[in-house]
Structures are given as C-alpha cells and as structure tokens.
C-alpha cells in the first residue's frame, strides 16, 4: 500500500527528473527549469500543509537554496525529491520560528468537521473535495501525521526518504502516515466506502 498509489505515480516522472537534474548539474538551465516544473507542485503542496499561505514565499526561498547547492546533490530523481523536500522543510521551519506561529489553528478543525455522509462513494468525495478543504483536513492532523502524509502522498517520497526528510525512523513515519490517512479517511467519510465500494476501488488501482 505504501508503495502503491502516488509514490508509484511519482516514480513515472523520476526518470525524467533524474535526467533533468543530471543535465542541470552539468550547467543546463533549461533542464533545471524542467526539474523545477516536476518538483514544484508537490513541494508547494507540502509547504502549504506546513506554513499555509506563506508556502509560495518559503518555496521561493527553498528554490534559491536548491539552485545554489545543486552541485552538491548526489542521487536520482527520487533522491532529488527528498533532497528538495528537506531543504523546503528547513526553510519552512525557519519561517515558523520567525513567525512564532503554530502551523495549525484549532479553528480549522471546526470547518473541517462538516463531514459528508458515511455512505458517499469515492467519486462523490472527489467531486466535493476542494483543495481548501483537503488542506484544512490535512492541517487539522497532528503535525507529524500531516507531514508524513504530505511527504508520502503529495511529494511522492517512499518511506525511507520521508523518514530521512523528517529525521525520524522509517517505522515511526510509516505509522504516522498510516494514522493520518486513516483519520483523513474517517473525516472524509471514505472509510464507509470500504464496505460497499471496495470493488470499484480495487479496480481503480
């Protein structure tokens, strides 16, 4: 399951990303732009989950550092995701430290808790789930769970890479991601799908 879904999809780009990074390290700025376009959406999604509306600024800072330190990096496309996520995370934590603001507020969870009916199907959830709501849900999670979910699902890291970004043991991160996803599923009412919609979902993978 951990390797299913998004990480596998991210892997499809990882070959392209690795090649782009290698060319960029050779000095090709067009290749660097390609790498940016592949990595930025996930990075921004992750940062939104941590710093909210300041994600763009933090991402911009992170990219300055990424652009500067690119020569130091060693690894493939998947490694580049992890490396950039680590840099982005450090920038985000710096940002939070500067602001002295908690990344989450309790008020968010109130908006979040108007859940759909427990019987809604996967498609209905998908149709109804806005970016804002999904973000609010994720940010409503405990911090470690939110980060684990975002790194795994949105950035597309595998377990060990996510653990390395967070500076934790892979087992702890796996547990956190699992709990986070479970809680999200419950809040979204997707869990009810397990009983009557498992056939459709099974086909969708």
């Amino acid at each position: 399951m951990g390797q299913g879904g998004e990480p596998r999809r991210a892997q499809a780009y990882d070959g392209e990303l690795g090649a782009a990074v290698a060319r960029a390290q050779g000095g090709d700025e067009a290749a660097f732009a390609v790498a940016y376009r592949i990595v930025q959406p996930g990075l921004l999604g992750y940062l939104r989950g941590i710093v909210g509306d300041d994600a763009e600024d933090v991402a911009s800072d992170a990219w300055l550092e990424i652009a500067r330190d690119l020569g130091r990096f060693q690894g493939d496309g998947a490694g580049f995701r992890g490396w950039t996520a680590t840099i982005a995370r450090h920038r985000a934590l710096d940002h939070l430290r500067r602001l002295r603001v908690r990344p989450r507020s309790a008020a968010l969870e109130q908006d979040v808790l108007d859940l759909p009916g427990p019987r809604s199907t996967h498609d209905e959830v998908l149709e109804n789930l806005s970016t804002e709501r999904a973000l609010a849900l994720v940010r409503g999670l405990p911090r470690d769970q939110a980060e684990a979910v975002l790194l795994r699902v949105v950035v597309g890291l595998d377990g060990p890479s996510a653990a390395r970004v967070l500076g934790k043991r892979p087992g702890a991160v796996r547990t956190a991601a699992h709990r986070g996803l479970k809680r999200l599923a419950r809040q979204l009412g997707v869990e009810g799908v397990t009983d009557d919609g498992s056939r459709t979902l099974g086909e969708s993978t």
């Binding site: 399951m1 299913g4 879904g5 998004e6 999809r9 996967h122 959830v125 998908l126 789930l129 999904a134 994720v138 979910v149 795994r152 699902v153 949105v154 597309g156 996803l181 999200l184 599923a185 979204l188 997707v190 869990e191 799908v193 397990t194 498992s198 979902l201 099974g202 969708s204 993978t205």
Partner: peptide
C-alpha cells in the same frame, strides 16, 4: 489497500 490508495490518489 485499494481504499487507502484511492484516498492517497485523491489527496495528491
């Protein structure tokens, strides 16, 4: 697994 994968895909 299918359930979780669907949720992950959705969130992504």
């Amino acid at each position: 697994t299918a359930d979780r994968a669907g949720l992950e895909e959705l969130l992504a």
